[in-house]
Design a protein around this nucleic acid. Structure first.
Lengths: 232, 232
DNA sequence: CAGTGGTCTAGACCACAGC
DNA sequence: CTGTGGTCTAGACCACTGC
């Protein structure tokens, strides 16, 4: 019980929200009322409310008051690492190809470039215990500092290819996850002979100006990957 | 440029982190130094630093200082709604079965109950434009206030079944996403005759004491669903 | 107009790191 | 010991809302 006062305030209000004592849309008591209730100054109350707001419990409207927020029921946190997932890890990668290509219309469009710009194409197969578990294709816009040594490319994640070891808070990434039946080429690379499902993860990377800088498509054998996400 | 001072501080430091002027592990200037630099009081500086900390840019160690945090490169935000996804929405659902069962060993284990407890089994098929797009199975521990009217169950999401319209910040959920080949039963429900991949989403719900209260397995036709996630 | 939240000050005391 | 971050105060002025 050595918690600072503002934590007390946070937890009291959370509790009230969680037993429906306060419902979405209800007003939270005004700051001055909470000051009196807890016998503290306004800055202390505001610190508590700021935390509740940052955690999505409440929101404030200047001149009016603070209100209980509707919980975001559909939001999850997903941890995705190309080379590691909860049921399996890639322990080796083989570089099939790294070449400079001219993009076709679809690719140029996705990368928002003209068709006369050069794009780096990288194709790899990922292995676990010698078994091919994923086929990986990446299209990258070239920029300075990128790895040019094939051995580096071979074992690098998408993030590592473009950020080159530098910290990068600015890099934005989008994932698109789907299930597909492998085409003949993919079947060949993954030694698939019978019916099989692929978990396909498409990654798109954007720089801090929101311009696409790379697209990656990783097709995992369905029995070798499981993605996990959780609320909170 | 009418931004409050603390926003200025936040953006200045973000900028320094993003051009590697400040690197992960580096110390952020001490609060008193920032007070002088910006000509403001300490509380104002601290407000800025609190924001940077809540956004994962920095962390503070009492008695020592504030440090630049390593970015969490593998974290994404996923929006998952059983009935709605970026490329398709469920517009109808058919209830196949709702019964009380005794769990087998595996299910009892997953729900952390003994095998003599009753479990509600719900099986449904989801439709879009009259086409069956997903086969859905749920196992629920019964609790008061749950919908018992079949018509309600038919169209409800998992969240709605257990939370019954009440706000629920306390409910924790975990997702497990994989690609699978449909079994004969699923093929029948989804009218699948040829080779097809399923995107299978397993949901597990926990109450605020972290006890499982339900498991749901939704198997979507691979060509009817795409999950999307993004960093930031 | 009174009540609300948003910003900010200029102090204070504390616990903790490191010398 | 000094310097650091963590908590807190008792005010202040502002802009906005709703009556």
């Amino acid at each position: 019980m050595a918690d600072p006062v503002y934590i007390q305030i946070v937890e009291d209000i959370k509790k009230k929200v969680n037993n429906a004592e306060l419902r979405p849309g209800d007003t939270v008591p005004p700051e001055n009322a909470l000051c009196k209730e807890y016998g503290v100054s306004r800055m202390t109350v505001r610190k508590g409310l700021a935390i509740l707001a940052s955690e999505g419990y409440i929101y404030s409207v200047p001149g009016k008051g603070s209100y209980v927020q509707k919980p975001e029921v559909n939001k999850y946190t997903l941890h995705y690492d190309e080379m590691n997932n909860p049921i399996n890890s890639v322990d080796n990668a083989r570089l099939l190809e790294v070449t400079i290509i001219m993009p076709d219309e679809k690719l140029a469009d996705e990368l928002r470039i003209t068709r006369n710009k050069h794009v780096i194409l990288i194709r790899r197969v990922f292995y676990t215990d010698g078994v091919p578990v994923a086929y990986d294709v990446k299209y990258l816009l070239y920029s300075k500092g990128m790895p040019i040594v094939e051995k580096e490319i071979e074992q690098a994640t998408f993030q590592e290819m473009v950020s080159n070891g530098l910290p990068n808070f600015a890099l934005k990434k989008k994932l698109s996850i789907s299930a597909q039946i492998p085409n003949e080429e993919t079947k060949r690379y993954l030694n698939i002979y019978d019916e099989h499902a692929l978990l396909v993860v498409e990654q798109k990377l954007y720089n801090n100006e929101n311009k696409p800088i790379g697209i990656g498509i990783t097709s995992y054998r369905g029995d070798y990957i499981k993605l996990q996400a959780s609320s909170d």
